[in-house]
Each structure stands twice: as structure tokens, then as C-alpha cells.
């Protein structure tokens, strides 16, 4: 158990050393959200109408940017190979790394979200729904995303390819998350949407670590 705690601590430590890498996806998210009032219309009703979709799409895009970091540093300094040769369970290692990645990406998002909600004129109910969908949905992004990241570690042209692979897979999450926030706007219940997202999350939590381990074995030969 202490081995995995060790990996957890190490990843956390490395993440905090590279503060720029943590902040940049957030800056990206903020800027992309800002583009919409500028490019579409600053009218409050319009922003409220498109707000949930805008925030979720921007969250998906910025998460795709940040995801490459998941295995890249370990690949570059040889630690990844060491993990794979060590005899520790690779699915467990993957799960720990994804957990750190999620914590490090999500908590700042949590802090930033009231600002985004304010920019897009979301009501308080919508904001609560947004937070719940982000809470359940962002680990799903990290878990499923890590499968594709595992496959493309070491490829030079990784970045856009990663987006091409993952965007279709994230579409159901986008649909249910934005629907939940839209329902909240109309004072309607949205437990069913949250339940579906939670179900997808549980499925991913159960299966993704094994898929990630397999992907790493494929890309690292």
C-alpha cells in the first residue's frame, strides 16, 4: 500500500513543481469562455442559454490539453518503464496517477467555476447543477482520456490525435451534463441525468484502469 502512496505523493509533488502546467489549462478555459460573449453576443439571456454548453465544451477542450501530461514526464525520465517492470499492478498505478491528475485539475476548476458562472450569467440553481455535473463528469474525462493518452505516449503528433480520438467518446457526457444544467435553469429535476453520468463514471472506474494498463503495454512494447 505504501508503494502506491509513494506514487501518489511523487506525482502530487511533481505537479506542484510545475505550476505553469497547472495554471495554463485554467487560463485556456477562462479565455475560451470569454470568446463566446465576444463572438456570439453579450446579451444575458443568450449567455444563459448557451452557458452550460460553453462551459462544458471549454472544460472538455482544456482537459484534453492537460491530459497529455499524464504519462509524458514519466515516459521522458524512464520512470514509466520502471513502473511497468516493477511487478506492481499496472492498473493500480494507472488509477493512482489518474487520481492525482484529476485532483490537480479539478480543484482549481472548482475555484474558477463561480467566475465562469458569473461571466455567463448562470443562475444559482444552474451553478449547483454545473458543479455536480463537473464533479461526476471530470473524473470520467480523466479515466477514459487516460486510455487514449496511454496509447499515444511517445508519439510526436500526439496532441490533436488525442482530441480526435476522445471527442466522440465524450459526447454522451456532454449531452447529459448540459441537459442537467438546462433542467436546473427551468427549475426541473435533473437527478436522472446525474444518475446516468454517475453510472458511466462507475463503469469507467471499474474498467478504465485495466484498459489504461493495456494501452501502456501496447505503446511501450
Amino acid at each position: 500500500m505504501s508503494l502506491y502512496t509513494g506514487i501518489f505523493k511523487r506525482d502530487l509533488h511533481i505537479a506542484f513543481k510545475q505550476k505553469a502546467e497547472l495554471v495554463q489549462p485554467l487560463m485556456f478555459l477562462l479565455m475560451v469562455v470569454t470568446l463566446f460573449p465576444l463572438g456570439v453576443s453579450p446579451a444575458p439571456e443568450t449567455l444563459q442559454r448557451i452557458g452550460p454548453g460553453v462551459i462544458w465544451i471549454a472544460a472538455i477542450l482544456s482537459s484534453l490539453l492537460a491530459m497529455e501530461r499524464l504519462f509524458r514526464d514519466d515516459f521522458n525520465d524512464g520512470a514509466l518503464e520502471q513502473y511497468m517492470l516493477s511487478g506492481m499492478a499496472l492498473p493500480a498505478i494507472s488509477a493512482v496517477k489518474v487520481a492525482v491528475h484529476w485532483l490537480v485539475s479539478f480543484v482549481p476548476l472548482l475555484v474558477l467555476s463561480p467566475l465562469l458562472a458569473m461571466f455567463l450569467n448562470l443562475t444559482y440553481d444552474m451553478y449547483i447543477a454545473l458543479m455536480l455535473t463537473l464533479l461526476l463528469g471530470s473524473p470520467l474525462l480523466s479515466l477514459v482520456g487516460a486510455i487514449a493518452v496511454g496509447l499515444t505516449v511517445g508519439l510526436q503528433k500526439g496532441g490533436v490525435l488525442l482530441a480526435l480520438l476522445l471527442i466522440p467518446v465524450f459526447i454522451p457526457l456532454l449531452i447529459f451534463a448540459t441537459s442537467a444544467v438546462d433542467s436546473a435553469a427551468l427549475q426541473l429535476p435533473y437527478q436522472s441525468q446525474l444518475a446516468i453520468i454517475a453510472a458511466m463514471l462507475l463503469l469507467a472506474a471499474a474498467l478504465a484502469p485495466f484498459a489504461i494498463a493495456y494501452s501502456l503495454r501496447v505503446s511501450q512494447n
Binding site: V144, I147, A148, L151, T152, L165, P168, V169, A211, Y214, S215, V218, S219
Partner: peptide
């Protein structure tokens, strides 16, 4: 082949 196979299955 293996990598594309993983994505085909995820798909």
C-alpha cells in the same frame, strides 16, 4: 494494430 484495436473496442 493493437493501439487501433483498443480504440475500436472503446468505440
Amino acid at each position: 494494430g493493437k493501439a487501433a484495436g483498443v480504440m475500436a473496442l472503446v468505440g
